[in-house]
């Protein structure tokens, strides 16, 4: 097995099982994908394509409807919760109640998979927490409470939390949404630096095509499914995967984002009207 492969999925069907009177919803019936270590992969797709659903499925927060996910060549279902938390870390868009704890406390929570029953931090843990805060440049705010941070700083604090978790795989759901241009690029650059220097597999969903083309090593283009495709009446469009250069050259990006009114211009690497 290639040790650079972090996550692999074959004919993965994602969605929500029909339960408690709710209808079974298939978001995508068949995805094949491979996530590599030491790279930043940007997951792009229209609203409703199921980017969050895919991320949540890959980190075990929701079950796949079918197919197989291998985390470091071992089936996801074989992992115990405690084991998985030391392999895959997440940064989500979920609302938290973390406003009242200090940045240091927040980043310390990342040590939970590695600490004992009461979550007490040892000297080594404290060192890792400080290192994580340094790595994202939030160390100066360690004693501030999370509520006092700007959106960009808050995002960095959560990235520091996931770093303290020391997972080889990091999944981030729209980490740059709500950020100004500078913070957006800073955050992406930080993640890129971490992936390259610490050999982490970083997968993030984003709507920011510009930054993704500049700073991601690889792009995943997740298509939205029609009802017929979701029901399996027609073969669904696959997840398109490749480096930004390849996807620009072979016209995948143009095909993926282009509509009647908008087209992707390979020269300027931008969507134009």
């Amino acid at each position: 097995m290639d040790s650079s492969i972090a996550i692999e999925a074959r004919s993965l069907s994602i969605g929500y099982p029909g339960r408690n009177g709710r209808r079974r919803t298939v978001v995508h019936p068949s995805l094949d994908l491979t996530l590599f270590r030491g790279e930043v992969t940007a997951l792009l797709g229209r609203n409703g394509a199921g980017k969050s659903t895919l991320l949540r499925t890959l980190c075990g927060l929701q079950r796949p409807l079918g197919g197989e996910i291998l985390i470091e060549s071992r089936p996801l279902a074989d992992y115990r919760a405690g084991e998985l938390s030391a392999r895959v870390g997440v940064v989500l868009t979920e609302r938290t109640q973390a406003g009242g704890i200090s940045v240091y406390d927040l980043v310390s929570l990342g040590r939970y998979p590695h600490t004992g029953f009461f979550g007490t931090l040892g000297e080594k843990d404290h060192a890792i927490v400080r290192e994580a805060m340094d790595a994202v440049g939030i160390a100066g705010k360690a004693e501030k409470s999370v509520a006092e941070l700007s959106d960009g700083e808050r995002q960095k604090a959560f990235i520091a939390k996931v770093l303290a978790q020391e997972c080889p795989i990091i999944l981030l759901d729209e980490p740059t949404a709500f950020l100004d241009v500078t913070s957006r690029i800073e955050t992406m650059a930080t993640l890129r630096h971490l992936a390259h220097t610490q050999d982490k597999a970083v997968l993030l969903s984003t709507h920011d095509l510009d930054t993704a083309l500049q700073l991601a090593d690889r792009l995943w283009l997740q298509p939205a499914c029609t009802e017929e495709e979701a029901a399996g009446l027609r073969p669904a469009a696959p997840l398109i995967c490749g480096t930004p250069e390849t996807l620009i050259e072979d016209g995948s990006l143009a095909g993926f984002f282009g509509t009647e009114a908008i087209r992707f211009d390979p020269e300027s690497r931008r969507l134009v009207v």
Binding site: R56, A81, S85, A86, G89, V90, E94, T96, L109, Y112
Partner: peptide, 8 residues
């Protein structure tokens, strides 16, 4: 979700 991801 975060709590689950932290192994809780």
């Amino acid at each position: 979700a975060y709590a689950t991801n932290l192994g809780i």
